[in-house]
Design a protein around this nucleic acid. Sequence first.
DNA 1: ACAAAAGTGTTGCCAGTACACCCATGA
DNA 2: TCATGGGTGTACTGGCAACACTTTTGT
Lengths: 223, 223
Amino acid sequence: MDNYNSEENSIIESLISIFTVNKGEVKILLFRKKTEPYKGYWMLPGNVLKSNESLEENINEYVLLKCGFSELYIEQCLVFSEINRIPDKRVVATTCIGLIDSKSVELKQEISSTIESEWFNISAIPKTIYDHAEIIGKSIDYLKERIINSNILKILFPSDFTLPELQKVYEQILDTELDRRNFRKKFINLGLIEDTGYKNEGYTGRPAKLYRFKENFEGKNLF
Amino acid sequence: MDNYNSEENSIIESLISIFTVNKGEVKILLFRKKTEPYKGYWMLPGNVLKSNESLEENINEYVLLKCGFSELYIEQCLVFSEINRIPDKRVVATTCIGLIDSKSVELKQEISSTIESEWFNISAIPKTIYDHAEIIGKSIDYLKERIINSNILKILFPSDFTLPELQKVYEQILDTELDRRNFRKKFINLGLIEDTGYKNEGYTGRPAKLYRFKENFEGKNLF
DNA sequence: ACAAAAGTGTTGCCAGTACACCCATGA
DNA sequence: TCATGGGTGTACTGGCAACACTTTTGT
């Protein structure tokens, strides 16, 4: 391309599907829309890309401001550019997935915001605006691919976790059941986690061993 | 997001890494830049996204106009939004890979264009403008991931091919050597190709069998 | 003691890998 | 007949899947 002197500017919105694990459940963060149209429906967090920031900077700044999360882990997902994805407006959506561990969610910074937000189980997404349902679906597909081909879940478990916990997260995202014994064998043999020596006591049943992800280990093709 | 009444519009350029296989070599199509800055350097085909077309429509229309290719196979790659990827201009690049078989390249439609274009071996990319070298690198990485996890190469071989040909393409893209016997076994056992009964005669050495991809077969995790 | 949940071991199978010889053709 | 490149089989290994019983805790 030789020439950028075009009048054809576009509005770009960045949309982010933020996932966390809370009490063993995989959740996605949505905001409630407070104005017409689609008043009362839910939507992905996101905002208009400004000319002095990259997509990633834009999202980080936005989630800090609106959610109080600093240092959100981000990966790019897809671009949605269909002309009528928003009626009567041309808005190109660049989408990302974000991962944040539940402890960081608890420790989030104070925000002054009137946004109504809620974490939804990924198998129970509410009514959403425009094409956000499709975007959420693609984001979950992307996450699925990533937990198979990388150890991205390390982000969601920065400290100790039990193997049954980890397994349940895989099962929710992959939408399938896994064999406990084979799951253990696989993860332990992969060499990317280590036993902390501690146990997860205080629950009913036998206490589970606590593991942690090793540092500097880039996993490949887990499933 | 509630409000699109922003003054913060952006220029979006779509850039496409078009790959083909010609005489056994994997190639990418680049254009020569004819104006300063970077006059004489090479660049990815692409143009400014207009408000009445989606990313995919934009690319299809553009490659038909500038290259004469109709029905290019396209997949989305990454977005490049660093503020200074182009000095003094804010242009967001949405990138795709495209695949076209060599027969369709030969049969391309007549175009009236003064563009100087050339197919480059993917292991011998010339000097390129701005961040196009990085984009090309990421596109090849993406292609690598796709030929491992899908049978996308079917697009490059719509008609008969020999297994040694196919293997050489894998070797170039994965940048590794593969065992001939194991490669054959794998592809034949996968059940996604079939023997045409014909042979590739007229070359030195024993003629190779000609295979074709079966219809409606979505391969998974090939390597 | 019982209920609840976690930990463990064996076997069969299939896919991946390493490896060497024979075959069909053109020159 | 020779040079060139293509086709084939075997044995080993490691990962994956299927499967049932024992262990540790709280109540």
